[in-house]
Computed example of a mutant assay.
Amino acid sequence: MALTDRDNSDTPPETSGVDYGVRHVAIIMDGNGRWATNKGWPRLAGHRRGAERIKQIVRAAPEMGVQYLTVYAFSTENWKRSTEEVLGLMGIFARYIEKEADELSALGVRMRFIGGRGRLDSKLSRLMSGIEERTAVNTRLNLTVAINYGGRNEIARAAAQLARDYAAGLLTEDQLDEAAFEARLDTAGLPDPDLVIRTSGETRTSNFLAWQAAYSEYEFTETLWPDFTPEQLAEMLARFGRRDRRFGGAK
């Protein structure tokens, strides 16, 4: 199905070259299905448009000083959706990886995935591992995609691994601290997000980065993800820069 109102994703945003001082942005990309339904199109058409939007934001983010971009693509709860939608989403993920591998490498993007992979299709899992290896040396932007991810599930898995390591004698009781726990999270080695954005008007965090976003700032917008633009991202980054972040300390 042709999406006749698609914008030109290759057009550079007017905000290029402005560093807003935000190192890590995480996005709950909500509203793809509603965007398509509002137009009388199948929900998967919205997910395809959402994938195109990721490409535009990935190109724009480094020009705004963003070094890490983490996007919520598929949650552990999304398996409750129809079989048709789930299979369609998995196909979109696989095609995105296959189609964008060369461009991501050329743009200097390092791509990695968080979430449990045991339930994913073996082909998709191989593609994910392949692009992680291929882009591992890139440093311009660290793009992390959360697939079959849930914050509580991640915490439970990390806690179980910590317990196994302690039982195996790899850790002493004195080493059972936050640093040891964080080292066993899917995001080990990544900084916590400075800013978490959710599109589509919902104001839930939806089990996204439950540990990592403890002190993140949040932005919520009515805009559905397929309509979210680099200019809107720039506005949010600018607002972030005006916030007084005390991390629990007195002013």
Rank of each mutant, 00 (worst) to 15 (best):
D186L: 01
W211V: 04
S200I: 14
A51F: 05
S216P: 08
F93G: 00
S206I: 13
N142A: 10
N32S: 14
A36R: 02
Y215P: 13
R204F: 03
M1F: 02
G65F: 12
A183C: 04
A146P: 08
S125G: 07
G21N: 10
V66C: 13
A101R: 14
M1T: 13
A60T: 12
P42C: 01
D186F: 14
Q175V: 03
G201H: 04
I92N: 06
R119N: 11
G108Q: 08
P226A: 04
A188N: 03
E103M: 08
F181M: 12
G31H: 09
K123R: 15
T229Q: 06
A213G: 07
D5E: 10
A136Q: 11
D174P: 00
N38C: 05
E84N: 09
V25D: 06
T199H: 03
T4C: 04
R134E: 00
A179P: 06
E132C: 07
A159K: 07
T223R: 11
W35Q: 03
L170H: 14
Q175F: 05
S122T: 14
W225K: 04
I97T: 06
F228R: 08
I197V: 14
R59W: 08
R95Q: 07
D244Y: 03
E100H: 04
T83C: 01
I92S: 00
A2Y: 03
G249Q: 03
D177W: 07
T199A: 04
L141E: 00
E178Q: 02
V58R: 04
F220E: 07
F220N: 06
A45H: 11
R23W: 05
L127K: 10
I54E: 02
T221I: 00
Q232P: 04
S82R: 05
A179L: 06
T223D: 03
F113C: 09
A160L: 15
A250S: 13
E14C: 10
I27N: 01
E77A: 07
F240T: 03
E173K: 13
T205I: 15
R134D: 04
N8E: 07
K55G: 01
R49D: 00
A213E: 09
D244H: 15
I27H: 00
E98A: 10
L233R: 10
A156E: 15
T144C: 15
N153Q: 11
P13T: 12
I114C: 06
P13Y: 00
E219D: 01
R157H: 08
R126W: 08
L124P: 12
V71G: 08
A61V: 13
T203C: 12
D227G: 03
T135N: 03
D5H: 12
F240G: 01
G248T: 09
G130N: 06
G50H: 02
L143A: 09
E77F: 02
A26T: 02
A51R: 08
